[in-house]
Design a protein around this nucleic acid. Structure first.
Lengths: 160, 160
DNA sequence: ACTATTTTGGGTTGATTACCCACTTCTGAA
DNA sequence: TTCAGAAGTGGGTAATCAACCCAAAATAGT
């Protein structure tokens, strides 16, 4: 459950008929904190990510700090609505869950349309260093095609 | 019933024929104070919010403080309109209610048109950190589309 | 005061999910 | 190649909870 190890790897899995998905055990452990909690996040259309709840909290705190900083310059009246706004957006974007048997995710209602993979369909599970991402295969391909050109020269340099 | 924990979560519910709707128990507890009171507030067209009575009071007090501050600095004519505005706010914007058993809210007369959801229709219930909000689904979608673009870059920066 | 209508609380049902177990597949060692 | 253990998959079952329905209570109207 060490966090100082980067989460890596890419694997294809299928979503079962009940919207469940088994993660590679190693990855599952990496996104489960001491309390057994994980946070599921809507990243972009066709992509969800999973975080150790503790790590996510930290990221969130940083975000709040920035907003507070901005707010302190503004009027008191606006503080309330800003906090409200942040909370609201957080609610749509993320949800705390726990993995069944420590390695199976149930993709909850509301996250399903976002991922846009039908039960029985395939997803890509990708380690993204600090979290893992669950991709709709076609969105994943799209991203690769867009980003590979930048990545490729880098890769050439390293191997040359 | 701690206030230092953010209220989060997003869920779709339906309004019954009697203008009632059941909240998730956890959320219901979060907006109910020791005396069992909750305040229902007209937030904007298509959106109502629910507060622990004590928290709402605090927000009101902050608002009053600002108005007093403005008034003492401002001209006489502004006094009246501000006072008038405050009065309207107090009498029409919010109402103290209590949740029925099983965490059921009755949306009172006067708040119904504001929410603009027909009995039998659907609403989104959204945790907004310090309160929970009840949204007309189409207004909710509208807001998300408007605010998501500004929200996402903020978080992108944090992970980079 | 009695009836009709609305409001409120409580019970029921059906769908969803958590939990569990059994079967299959994969991996690595002998 | 075979075997043992781990990893992954599928599915049955029980518990949970929202939506619905109904009965009791409250309110209004005549």
């Amino acid at each position: 459950m060490a966090t100082n190890i980067l989460i890596t790897g890419e694997i294809k899995r299928t979503l079962d008929e009940r919207h469940r998905l088994t993660l590679p055990t190693e990855m599952a452990n990496a996104v489960t904190d001491e309390a057994g909690n994980t946070v599921l996040v809507k990243e972009r259309a066709g992509c969800l990510s999973l975080w150790r709840a503790a790590d996510w909290q930290k990221r969130l705190d940083d975000g709040i700090a920035i907003i507070e900083q901005k707010m302190s310059a503004g009027r008191m009246e606006e503080r309330w609505s800003e906090v409200q706004r942040l909370g609201r957006l957080l609610s749509t974007r993320s949800k705390e869950i726990q993995l069944a048997k420590r390695s199976r995710v149930l993709v909850p209602e509301g996250f399903r349309e976002f991922l846009n993979v039908k039960p029985g369909g395939e997803v890509m599970i990708v380690g993204a260093a600090i979290c893992i991402e669950i991709w709709n295969p076609s969105n994943w391909l799209e991203l690769l095609q867009a980003e590979m050109p930048e990545f490729s020269p880098l890769f050439k340099n390293l191997s040359g």
